[in-house]
Simulated scan of single mutants.
Amino acid sequence: MKLKSTECSLKLNNERVSGLQNAIHIEELSKSFKRKRVIKPLSVQIESQKIYGLLGPSGCGKTTLIKMIVGMMKPDAGGITVLGKRVPDASLLSEIGYMAQSDALYTELTGRQNLEFFAKLYGMSKSERKIRIDYAAEIVQLSNDLDVSVFAYSGGMKRRLSLAIALIQNPKILILDEPTVGIDPLLKQSIWKELERLKAEEGKTILITTHVMDEAERCDKIGMLREGEIVAIGTPMEIKAQYHAASLDEVFVKIGGGH
């Protein structure tokens, strides 16, 4: 699916990003809460125009790490560079599409009004807003429910609207915290096809957290997080070979992710 009105801006965006080997560079990052070390000093490079999966059990630090990358949380030590800019940087807000683990929606508004609100925040013209809203709603299969109050949405519909909001401003980087939780298998497949298209055709960099191993298999590279540390990193095939495992589920158990 291509949007003709954005082809020129996409080309310019891709040319700027292509010069950066790593879209996200994390160096010696750490974070503690009430003396508990949630993220131990870690360093990770996330390449441009790739889908990078961050895996780990609940409580391992995935969401904390994501929030620091987005600039919502300040690390205790270390630094993060996104698209060549040190986080936090207000100019990055329009470059990152962020989908949080918990839905931050205006439930008294309709789905369309939510999308309109966020599109206006990014200064889109009326015609551009219509194109982006139609595109995002179609991707998450909410086109027929846009004029319904979000209060009446199911949990899965709210997740889909949150993903649409992350896509609305055509960002260079998508950061998605467990985006397919509560979404039916058919729609999940459709969303993953679009993520792969966004990477291949529009040069997006996508960072996604997940518990689901079949989704992890679709990532170009994955990092396995346990108790605030990256304990394995590489392509799905490389990690399985490293741990002499037939599946990522088996690797997950071997590194202690199954307890």
Rank of each mutant, 00 (worst) to 15 (best):
121 L>S: 12
123 G>Y: 04
123 G>Q: 10
124 M>K: 14
125 S>E: 12
125 S>K: 14
125 S>Y: 04
127 S>G: 05
128 E>F: 04
128 E>K: 14
129 R>I: 05
129 R>M: 15
129 R>Y: 04
130 K>Y: 03
130 K>A: 13
131 I>H: 00
131 I>F: 00
131 I>A: 08
132 R>Y: 02
132 R>C: 04
134 D>G: 01
134 D>W: 00
134 D>P: 00
136 A>E: 01
136 A>Y: 00
137 A>K: 02
139 I>A: 04
139 I>D: 03
142 L>R: 03
144 N>Q: 15
145 D>A: 09
145 D>Q: 05
146 L>Y: 02
147 D>G: 04
148 V>C: 05
148 V>A: 07
149 S>A: 12
149 S>K: 14
149 S>F: 01
151 F>V: 05
151 F>Y: 07
152 A>L: 10
152 A>N: 15
152 A>Y: 07
153 Y>G: 14
153 Y>Q: 13
153 Y>F: 13
155 G>F: 08
157 M>D: 15
157 M>G: 15
157 M>Y: 13
157 M>A: 15
158 K>T: 14
158 K>I: 13
159 R>P: 12
159 R>F: 06
160 R>M: 08
161 L>I: 10
161 L>Y: 05
162 S>I: 07
162 S>Q: 08
163 L>W: 03
163 L>D: 05
165 I>V: 13
166 A>F: 01
167 L>H: 07
168 I>P: 04
168 I>H: 04
168 I>D: 06
170 N>S: 12
171 P>I: 11
172 K>E: 13
174 L>M: 09
175 I>G: 11
178 E>C: 06
178 E>L: 04
179 P>Q: 07
179 P>I: 08
180 T>L: 05
181 V>S: 13
181 V>T: 15
181 V>E: 08
183 I>H: 02
183 I>W: 01
184 D>C: 04
184 D>G: 05
185 P>C: 05
185 P>T: 04
187 L>D: 01
187 L>P: 00
187 L>C: 00
188 K>F: 00
188 K>T: 10
189 Q>A: 08
190 S>E: 12
190 S>M: 04
190 S>W: 01
191 I>S: 11
192 W>D: 09
192 W>M: 10
192 W>R: 11
193 K>N: 12
195 L>Y: 06
195 L>W: 06
197 R>N: 08
198 L>K: 08
199 K>S: 10
199 K>N: 11
200 A>V: 06
201 E>R: 13
202 E>Y: 09
203 G>Q: 11
203 G>R: 14
203 G>M: 12
205 T>W: 12
205 T>H: 14
206 I>N: 13
209 T>M: 14
211 H>R: 02
212 V>P: 01
212 V>M: 06
214 D>Q: 12
214 D>Y: 03
214 D>T: 12
217 E>I: 07
217 E>P: 04
218 R>W: 00
219 C>T: 07
221 K>M: 06
222 I>R: 10
222 I>M: 09
224 M>T: 05
227 E>V: 02
227 E>Q: 09
228 G>A: 05
228 G>M: 04
229 E>G: 03
229 E>L: 03
229 E>H: 02
232 A>L: 02
233 I>C: 03
234 G>K: 03
